[in-house]
Nucleic acid binder design. Structure first.
Lengths: 102, 102
DNA sequence: CTGACATATGATAACATGGTCATATGTATT
DNA sequence: AATACATATGACCATGTTATCATATGTCAG
């Protein structure tokens, strides 16, 4: 289990943009432009971030005409999100701005 | 469930230093200097990173003379690590250098 | 095969993060 | 109280990460 793998794994969750994309996809698959419009993010921003998620195995792509429909790898992501939710619910008191390494 | 909470949560896992500290603590609680010596990290580096982990609820502190003994909040961290392991085992083929956002 | 649309890629600039050094605080021993 | 040890804090610099802009590729309709 290499450290680089850990890092890439965690990276998927470590930006607000990717988190928002993941949340959006948790409802259903969507094209780049759909995500882009729904979230108000630049097209290339969405594209870059989806590429990252795809490379890390969190997202799959399928063609549909000109579009590419991205969908979540639910099996891994959903339990992960649940786990995070549980922890955060319990520790939100701590989870204020972490001033230390800011 | 605020986004900042997610971000802080994930941050705990997002650096090699913190990951190493977590691994070290997974055996048993340890003082700053113990961690510092075992891992060969600067004292202040360990201290900064422990503070971050503590603030995010992943680690607890107890005094013992001059020392401060840090120990893992195992309930949250261990399932998290297991989940990561499982994903990484399955997707290591994807989890090579993610060139896109580098 | 041309135009229009959808997505991807690359370079760059702004910003965030982490490590180090210097220093401060806190605690026990004498 | 003075010293020594353990840890914490703050400021700074180096590095990594992200968003944006410009541009390229890819795909369908006509």
């Amino acid at each position: 289990m290499s450290d680089i793998s850990y890092k890439l794994f965690i990276r998927a969750f470590s930006s607000k943009t990717r988190l928002d994309i993941i949340k959006h996809l948790s409802k259903k698959g969507a094209s780049v432009s759909d995500i882009s419009n729904s979230l108000g993010f630049e097209q290339s921003r969405v594209s870059h971030n989806l590429a990252c998620l795809a490379e890390c195995g969190f997202v799959e792509v399928n063609r549909k005409g000109k579009q590419r429909i991205y969908s979540l790898n639910r099996k891994t992501i959903l339990p992960m999100l649940r786990l995070m939710d549980r922890h955060i619910k319990k520790y939100h008191k701590h989870l204020k701005e972490c001033g230390v390494l800011k």
